[in-house]
Simulated scan of single mutants.
Amino acid sequence: MQVPFDLTSYVRVLKLASTPSWNEFSQIAKIAGAGIVLVGLLGFIIFIFMSFIPS
């Protein structure tokens, strides 16, 4: 492991990184929230479906 080389690559990445604008952040948050709600809804539908199937 080459520590100086690793540190320079980390510094390079941090220099390229920037904070997102509010519009970009809100769009990402909406998409992530919609994905979480969709997966939860799918799990709930499967739970309801499995509850009504007789054992």
Rank of each mutant, 00 (worst) to 15 (best):
P20C: 08
S26D: 06
F5I: 13
S21A: 03
G33I: 03
T19Q: 04
I53G: 05
A29M: 14
G33L: 10
F52S: 08
R12E: 00
P20Q: 08
V37Y: 01
I31K: 15
F25A: 12
V39N: 02
L42E: 05
A17L: 05
L42R: 13
G43K: 02
V39H: 00
S26T: 15
L41P: 00
L7H: 03
T19A: 06
L38I: 12
I46G: 01
E24G: 07
V37Q: 06
S21Q: 03
F52V: 09
M1N: 07
I48K: 04
D6Y: 11
A17G: 04
V39D: 03
T19V: 08
F25L: 15
W22T: 11
S9T: 03
S18N: 09
Q2Y: 05
Q2I: 11
I53D: 10
V3E: 06
K15N: 06
L42T: 11
L41Q: 04
I28V: 15
I46F: 04
V3K: 08
F47Q: 13
V39R: 04
M50V: 13
G33E: 05
L38E: 07
I45L: 12
N23I: 12
P20F: 08
Y10K: 10
K15T: 00
P20D: 06
A32N: 07
G35K: 06
V37P: 00
L16C: 02
D6P: 01
I36E: 12
W22C: 07
F44Q: 01
V3M: 09
I48H: 11
V11Q: 09
T19C: 01
Q2K: 14
N23Y: 10
W22Y: 15
I48W: 10
I36V: 14
F5E: 12
K30M: 14
P4A: 06
S26K: 15
D6C: 14
F47M: 15
I31L: 14
P4L: 02
L42A: 10
I28Q: 13
F47C: 15
V3F: 06
G43Q: 13
A34V: 10
I28H: 03
K15H: 02
I36W: 07
Q27Y: 12
E24N: 11
I53T: 09
T8K: 15
F52E: 07
E24M: 08
L16I: 02
P20A: 02
S26W: 14
K30D: 05
Q27G: 01
L42M: 12
V11K: 05
S26P: 01
L7G: 00
T19G: 00
K15I: 06
G33V: 05
K15Y: 00
Q2T: 13
Y10T: 00
G35T: 04
E24I: 14
Q27S: 14
I48S: 09
F52N: 05
F52K: 10
D6M: 10
L14H: 00
F44I: 08
Q2G: 13
L14W: 01
K30A: 09
G35W: 10
F25K: 04
S18K: 08
I53N: 07
I36C: 09
F25W: 06
